[in-house]
Structure formats: structure tokens, C-alpha cells
Write a protein that binds this DNA or RNA. Sequence first.
DNA 1: TTTTAGCACTCTCACTGTTAGAGTGCTAAC
DNA 2: GTTAGCACTCTAACAGTGAGAGTGCTAAAA
Lengths: 344, 344
Amino acid sequence: MELAARKQKILSAIVESFIRTGEPVGSKTLISEAGLDVSSATVRNEMADLTNRGFLVQPHTSAGRVPTAQAYRYYIDNIMTAPPLSQSGREYIESALYQNADSPESILQGAAELISQLTDLASVASTPSGDDSRVHRISFVQTGSHTAMAVVIASNGIIKTKLFRCEFIITPEILEVFDKALNEVFTGVRLSSINQPFIQTAAARFGELSLFMPGVLTAIMEASKAAREISVCHSGYTRLMFIPDIDFLTARGVLEFLNNEHDLAAMLENLPIDTSVSIGAENSRRELALSSVVSTRYTIDSKPSGVLAVIGPLRMDYSRAISILEAVSETVGALIGELTDIQQ
Amino acid sequence: MELAARKQKILSAIVESFIRTGEPVGSKTLISEAGLDVSSATVRNEMADLTNRGFLVQPHTSAGRVPTAQAYRYYIDNIMTAPPLSQSGREYIESALYQNADSPESILQGAAELISQLTDLASVASTPSGDDSRVHRISFVQTGSHTAMAVVIASNGIIKTKLFRCEFIITPEILEVFDKALNEVFTGVRLSSINQPFIQTAAARFGELSLFMPGVLTAIMEASKAAREISVCHSGYTRLMFIPDIDFLTARGVLEFLNNEHDLAAMLENLPIDTSVSIGAENSRRELALSSVVSTRYTIDSKPSGVLAVIGPLRMDYSRAISILEAVSETVGALIGELTDIQQ
DNA sequence: TTTTAGCACTCTCACTGTTAGAGTGCTAAC
DNA sequence: GTTAGCACTCTAACAGTGAGAGTGCTAAAA
């Protein structure tokens, strides 16, 4: 649905004013702010029409208008632009993220913190899915007389460790046998296929050696599972409680949802590849019916991977959020990509 | 200050009724509930006295009485008992904690979740301080052509890993040289003494070999620091928002404080060794002026170590909280102790 | 046909009363 | 020392009032 130029200009002015002030916008305020060359009565007629068409609502008869989710949608799709960040902004982001560019997890944790700090909203960042990654190598480190650590290095750069325990006394020689035998079986195998049946088949191959292996095989399975699973970094959850638009019950619902990593990961998983904005009821989760989620996926070697997102009120600065997310996304993708390239 | 028997009985009944219902307690309600064999007028006289002495307040003239922090303090010190949990309760806790008794961190994370679930409050659990732990061993795992992982195993059972990068191509032989040379220097050294000067002195010892070492030495230093630092596991923060006594601003302040791991760790560090209750303004943090913290330290080999605590409203079931914390504490201490013994 | 001025209308917000109910403190009698 | 009785106080909930803001509608102007 396209709007006439003047209607669009009025809608735009209302949305921008409301995003800035949070106050319902009246016809008089509007002409003084938007520089329209018509009278307030004309604006009122237009506003009445926009209200009929579902772009605006009045909290009550004698209040100004407030944009609906539909208005934000129209504004974002047809009016708003999100210009790339300035050079200095990008440089700031790069240097901030470069601080702890050790592992994908630490990069993403840093990204979540940075995004939250820059937008003053809650932010989340999910690790790349490891579903089509493979085992690059498995190593072992002795940690005690009966305990050792399995280190699963995945081809996507994720490294997961898991401790295990043996009934017998562990020696460097035993770990070397494990290393040789298990890398023969596991190297190059897709993480997603390392499950209980796979482990059992593998154990069978080792003959009597497998009697020594239940602990280590379980550890490998669990580390592989952890390497495959998406984990979600986050930052700034409490910032949501400082946003005047968000009332207590809404904040509580959103925070409860965000703290449930399982549901959150599932939602992030279903977000589209491109930068996208989900406004209010457009969100798949009922808890977010009064919030907006702006998200984008970072790409590693031009393959869409994990999600970066901010969660905030409907009345947020979408343009700024998108610009920041896209800038951070670019750097995150590059940093993780580098990490993976080097490790291969 | 000791109270006469009847006064104490009345105070006790008021505290218990208020903890249960959250409603100010009036004189009539009280006699019907507490089974007192006196008239409401007598109770009123006693209540007036308790009010003068600072144990009770009235929200307003025509409301019942509400216990003050002083009343909770008196109740906890002189009246309340916290009987040990039943056998089945203890067994439930043991089996729940045994699930992921891999590492101190995973045990403590499990403990925090369990405590939060059982008390319906926010809970935190801090790892043992590593200040007087030593390096048990350092190991290396190759993760890429130019990257490897340093594994610092501390004598307190904490294991920390840190990735590092080298300009040259890493080979198993190089890692072996690192392993030999670095364990000679670091094994048995107190974690707390591994700092920048120590690293520099160490580097000097290696002569020209040290040119290859900046990355690995920094990694060891950071992993040692991480092993030494107290980290705080937590669970159930959003439960605080479901407690009717806690209003929005209070909850926001508490959550903000709890999310600041640095300040939180500092507060936990200063808690006493025994089970203790800090009521309202007794807390060292202003953010907790309207909340209570019940805490205890678990002991490893009969040495007081990290803290387990719950955070909730003044009106909480202190007896239950203490019983649960003490039961969990016992199991946590035993499990971490076992872990450490085995690894040595 | 579109725009505008004017005006009656509606609704909120902040106050002000009013009333029922709960709980108290005080007093005088037990 | 304890109790019955009673006047008193305070809140919560509801209704009423007036100022202020913003609207929709109508009729005239462009």
C-alpha cells in the first residue's frame, strides 16, 4: 500500500517525533515540527485518514496520535534509510572487537556487549551453527591420575573441551593410544552425526580396547554436541528495565524469555538471513508482542552464519540499530573468518 | 535485648504470619491465628510496646503491623530454627548435583540452579578463590597451524584454557619444547604470583628461546589469572521480578547489581564463613537495602571456600533458605573436594 | 475539489469530597 | 495485669469538578 506524498510526509514526521519524544503527536505540534505548509485542520484530515487505515491510534479522544506497528513497518520499508556508519564509527567497532578475538565465543560476547553499549538496548549474539562442521582433530590433556580432558577442534573454529574420568590410572601412553585410535575414527566426521549409535559403532571397531573407552567416548560425544549447538551470548538485559516505554510486566516477560537460552536460540535460528526488523506481533514469540527485534546475520566466507540482534521497545531508533548491527556484523564475520582460516 | 515470653510469642506470630501472607497483621487476626489466650486489647498493648521498641511499624494508622528488619533479626537469632533437611531432601540434592560433577564450575552452576529452583529466589554461587593455589601442570594442544591452546591445571581443581597465536608455524615438537621448558618454570608456582614481572623474569631465563614465547607466556598469564579469579555462577534472577514484595525500582537495582559480576564477587568475598543472613540495610550494598541475602560457605577439605547464597525480599522463608543452602553446601563441598583429590 | 477557520465536543488529569471498613489507643471497670 | 467498649484515624474506592489538549465537523474560501 503506497501513500500519497503528503500523507507519507505526515506519517514520517509522526513516527520520528514519537520515536524521539514518546509523546502522542497532535496536529499543531506536527506542523511546527515538520515544516508543513498547511493548516492544522488539513493535517487533522490526513491524520483521521491515516487512523482509519490503521497507521495511527489515539490513546484517547483528546490525545494526539501514536504510530501503530503498521506505521513502523511502513516507515521502515518505505521511508527510513540506515546509512552505513561513519569511518570513525567503524574503526571504533573494529578496535573494540579486536580486543579478545581469541575464539568465536569471545568475539561474539564482545560483539553483544558492544552492540548493547552502542544502542542502549538488550542484545544477543549467537554462535555459528556447527551442523555442517566436521571434526578437525581431537586432542587429550591429562588433568589428574584418573581424569583427562578431551579437546574437540571443529572445522568451524569452535573448540570444546570436556573432562572425563577413567577407572584405571591414566598415563601419557594411554592418551597417545586414545589420540591415535580416536582421531582415525573421528577426524573429518560431521559433528551432527556423532551421536549414541555412532559412538557404539565406533566402540565396536576398537575390540577389547573399547573396554577402556566409555568415558572418553562419552566426553567426545558431549564435546561434539556442544561444538555443534548454537550458544547465545548476551548483554545489557537490564537496560530493558530502564526504558520508559516498557512496563514491568512486559519487561518481566521479555527477560524471562531471554533467560531461557533454549527458546531464544530457537527463535534466533528462524530469523532470516538479511537484516530484518520484527515489530511487535510480527515476532514469533508472544513475549515479544510489545517489543521489536532488529537482527542480522554475519557471514563467514560469504556464508550466512549466526545472528546479531537487539531487543527493544517498538519506539526505538531503528535506523541507528540497523547501522550499528550491520557494521558490527561485518567485523564479526571477518574476525571469525580469519580465525577459522588460520586454524585449518 | 531479650523479650518477655509473651511478647516474643506475639512477635514470632506476627513475623510468621507476615512471611506467609504479606499482609499487615492486626490484633484480631493474630489471636485467631496464634492461639493466644488473651484478648485483642492485651495484644494491642503488647504490639504498641513492640512498635515503640522498633520491632514493628504501621504502614498507616488503621493498618496492622509489619515487622521491621530488627524484628526479622530478633526472630532469626532468638526464635527461628532451621532444621536439617529430611533424608529424602538431601538425597534429591545429592543426585541432582551429581549430574554434572565434572568441574568446580559446572558443580557450582548446578548448585545455583538447584538452590534457585528449590527456594524460588535468585541464587549465586562463587568458585573457590585460587589465591593460594599453585600450578599443577601446564599442557598444550595444537588447534591450528599458527594457534594453540594453553591448559593451566591448578591445584584447586580449576582448569583454564587460553588460545594463543604464533607468527611461526607450530609443530608438535615446538609444543613439546614449550611443555618442558614452561612446566619447569611454572609447576608449583602460586597462581597469585604469576604476573607481568614474573613473566618477564621467566622469559629472560629462556634466552633466545623467549623470542618464540610472547604469545604463550601471555596466554599462561591470562589463564592463571582466570584460574585464580573468583567467578560467580547464578540462576533465577528473573524470579525476583515475580515476588510481589519487590517493586520495579528495587528489582531493577538488584538485578543491575547482580549483573555486575565484579561488584557481586567483591560482596560475596566479604561474606562471613558461617551461614549468615543480611537483612535490608545490614547488606553492604545500597542496592540490597530492601532485600535479604542468606549465605553460607562450602568447605573443601574442611577449609571454607566459595559462597552459596540466595537473594530475596525481607519477607522470605529464612528457615527454608538456610536449610537448603546448608544441605547443598555440604554436597558441593564434598563433590569439589573429591574432584580435587582425584586430580592431584 | 481542496483547504481552512471556527466551534462544540470529548476525554484525561489532578483535585476534592464522601463513605465504608479496618484497626487502633484510651479509659474505666474487672 | 487484663479486658470490654468506644471514639478516633486512616485508607481505598468511587464520584464529581474544572482546566487543558486535541479532535471532528461544518460552512465558507480558494
